[in-house]
Amino acid sequence: MRALARLVARADGRGGTVLVELHGETPLLLRQTPTDGGVATVHLVGGAAGPLAGDDLRLEIEVGPGAAVRVHTVAASIALPGRPGAVSRMAVSAVVHAGATLHWLPEQLVAAAGCAHLAESRVAVAAGASLRWRDELICGRYGEAPGGAVVHTQVDYGGRPLLRQSLAVGPRAPGWAGPAVLGGASATGSLLVVDPSRPAEPATVDGTVARLPLAGGPATLWTATAPDAHTLRAHLTG
């Protein structure tokens, strides 16, 4: 299954945000939900199970100057096996213009047994814009070893590289469950906060959650491992 969804937001000039473009294809369906202050809120509604290996899903987000958008998903997505040898792919690309704000706060991605999934995010944040970007990965459904999954996140700030990370789990990622990478934790994730109004805070660690000030801009990455999705979420609220 191939699908393309697209969301374009503009400031309405009265402190609010209008969605000038909002369309999707099954299984990527977008629904605007009641606005929260001046922030346009959109939910991504999964229109089918999956993604299944072989699916190629793309979501494009553009937040115009001064606009503010928050995107959620209504449920966790579960990467499942499909045609032998096939890979499922979910690519999100976002552009956040000057003075704009984007919150990308989806539910977890679950890598089910036998899956082969690539989650790819490319975000360009203009200097002075704000971002909250959360990635959460659950390695296998309950009691299950995960298939192969790669969560790749690439963020630029003001045209400069801010964050590049690819987390790979599963049978083709040597040592992924070991003490150098996840240490047996079945849940892991990160929350990137780009906020030019907030001064950089020093790195701290609390258990298996670290707050890491990044080099390439006014940004902090929270990175965590956890025994389960619930605990992970509690770690990644920023």
């Binding site: 690819s166 987390l167 150098a180 990175t223 491992t225």
Partner: peptide
Amino acid sequence: AAAAPLADI
């Protein structure tokens, strides 16, 4: 860009 959360932590 292979990442390892525990390496950072």
